[in-house]
Design a protein around this nucleic acid. Structure first.
Lengths: 179, 179
DNA sequence: CGGCCTATGTATAACTA
DNA sequence: TTAGTTATACATAGGCC
């Protein structure tokens, strides 16, 4: 059998990491964005789902897809969040609690990595000793630099403070805080 | 040649119309939603894009994907829209102007119809929602679900509270808070 | 539901125009 | 940039747990 020379290399496997070559990345972005939107539209027609997608290109150019419209889906999402959050079925994080999808995990991980990037030095600090953190003047720093753990602590601190304040206003007792 | 009996039918082609069978539709929704989110995550890692997706299942259950987070992408999109809509580079419409894809056309048509139906009260609603958010009991929610703006507010609230508490402990004056 | 399987439909990487 | 082509990698319909 004469092996005919292949005209193209065909689709090649590519590693799932940021594509280095600028032009190549741009082309891939365009094609995959189109593919993503097509998949979305198919999901809509096949299953009668409502979908809203917002994409920012590496060059920060905005693209969007929506059915019936971006606005309607967004509005629904936002207003839902404002009503009652506790009993609402959690969209992303909590579905993972019952049966963890790899993808969801990946997403969470990537978000955590983002957090890490924001304050690497802080991660070190926290490792060294968590106590010292509570004595540093984090409130003089931008929120963006805090990681999740610190934000959690900030939240508890605030909630505790609120309890104390409420208690004080009701009972009239002194706070007993030292700062 | 012994033709081995095929174990499965393999993937079959399906018409691009709403799947009638309820159970089948549900299964397809789950699978394709997972696929959509995976494609999105790949777009993010390969091209460094930012993506936010909101999906409502046929049963109106919400699902979302976001990188770095749904909130951050949404915030960016909304704030951008609030600034200047006119001169903004149109996300979806204009690519169709040069070479019209069926999908994009379909989408645009449906969106136009939606817009007509709903009118312009949406922007108003969104603003109202933003305000309403700041008055909801965010402290009962996990930190992870808050976006930057909300975290900023949380921080200021905490700092303000601290000031008040400190002031109280020093001056002995009542707090004058109502909760 | 979500996982796992296989056969097959599709999306797309690499290239060309 | 966007538009085809081709060869392949990947997603997924249909089944079964």
């Amino acid at each position: 059998m004469m092996s005919k020379k292949k005209e193209t290399m065909g689709r090649q496997r590519i590693p799932m990491v940021r594509i280095k070559k600028e032009t190549h990345r741009q082309v891939t972005f365009s094609k995959r964005r189109a593919g993503l939107f097509k998949k979305a539209s198919e999901l809509c027609t096949l299953c009668g789902a409502e979908v809203g997608i917002i994409v920012y290109s590496p060059a920060k150019k905005p693209f969007s897809f929506g059915h019936p419209s971006v606005e309607s889906v967004l509005d629904r999402y936002l207003s839902r969040n404002n009503l009652s959050i506790a009993q609402e079925q959690k969209p992303q994080g909590n579905t993972a609690a019952s049966g963890v999808l790899n993808m969801e995990l990946t997403q969470i991980v990537s978000q955590l990595e983002e957090e890490k990037k924001k304050g690497q030095a802080m991660a070190e600090m926290r490792k060294a000793n968590a106590v010292r953190w509570s004595m540093t003047n984090w409130w003089e720093r931008p929120v963006e630099e805090m990681n999740m753990v610190q934000l959690q602590e900030m939240k508890s601190a605030l909630v505790e403070l609120m309890k104390i304040v409420v208690s004080e206003t009701i009972t009239g007792k002194p706070l007993g805080l030292r700062m």
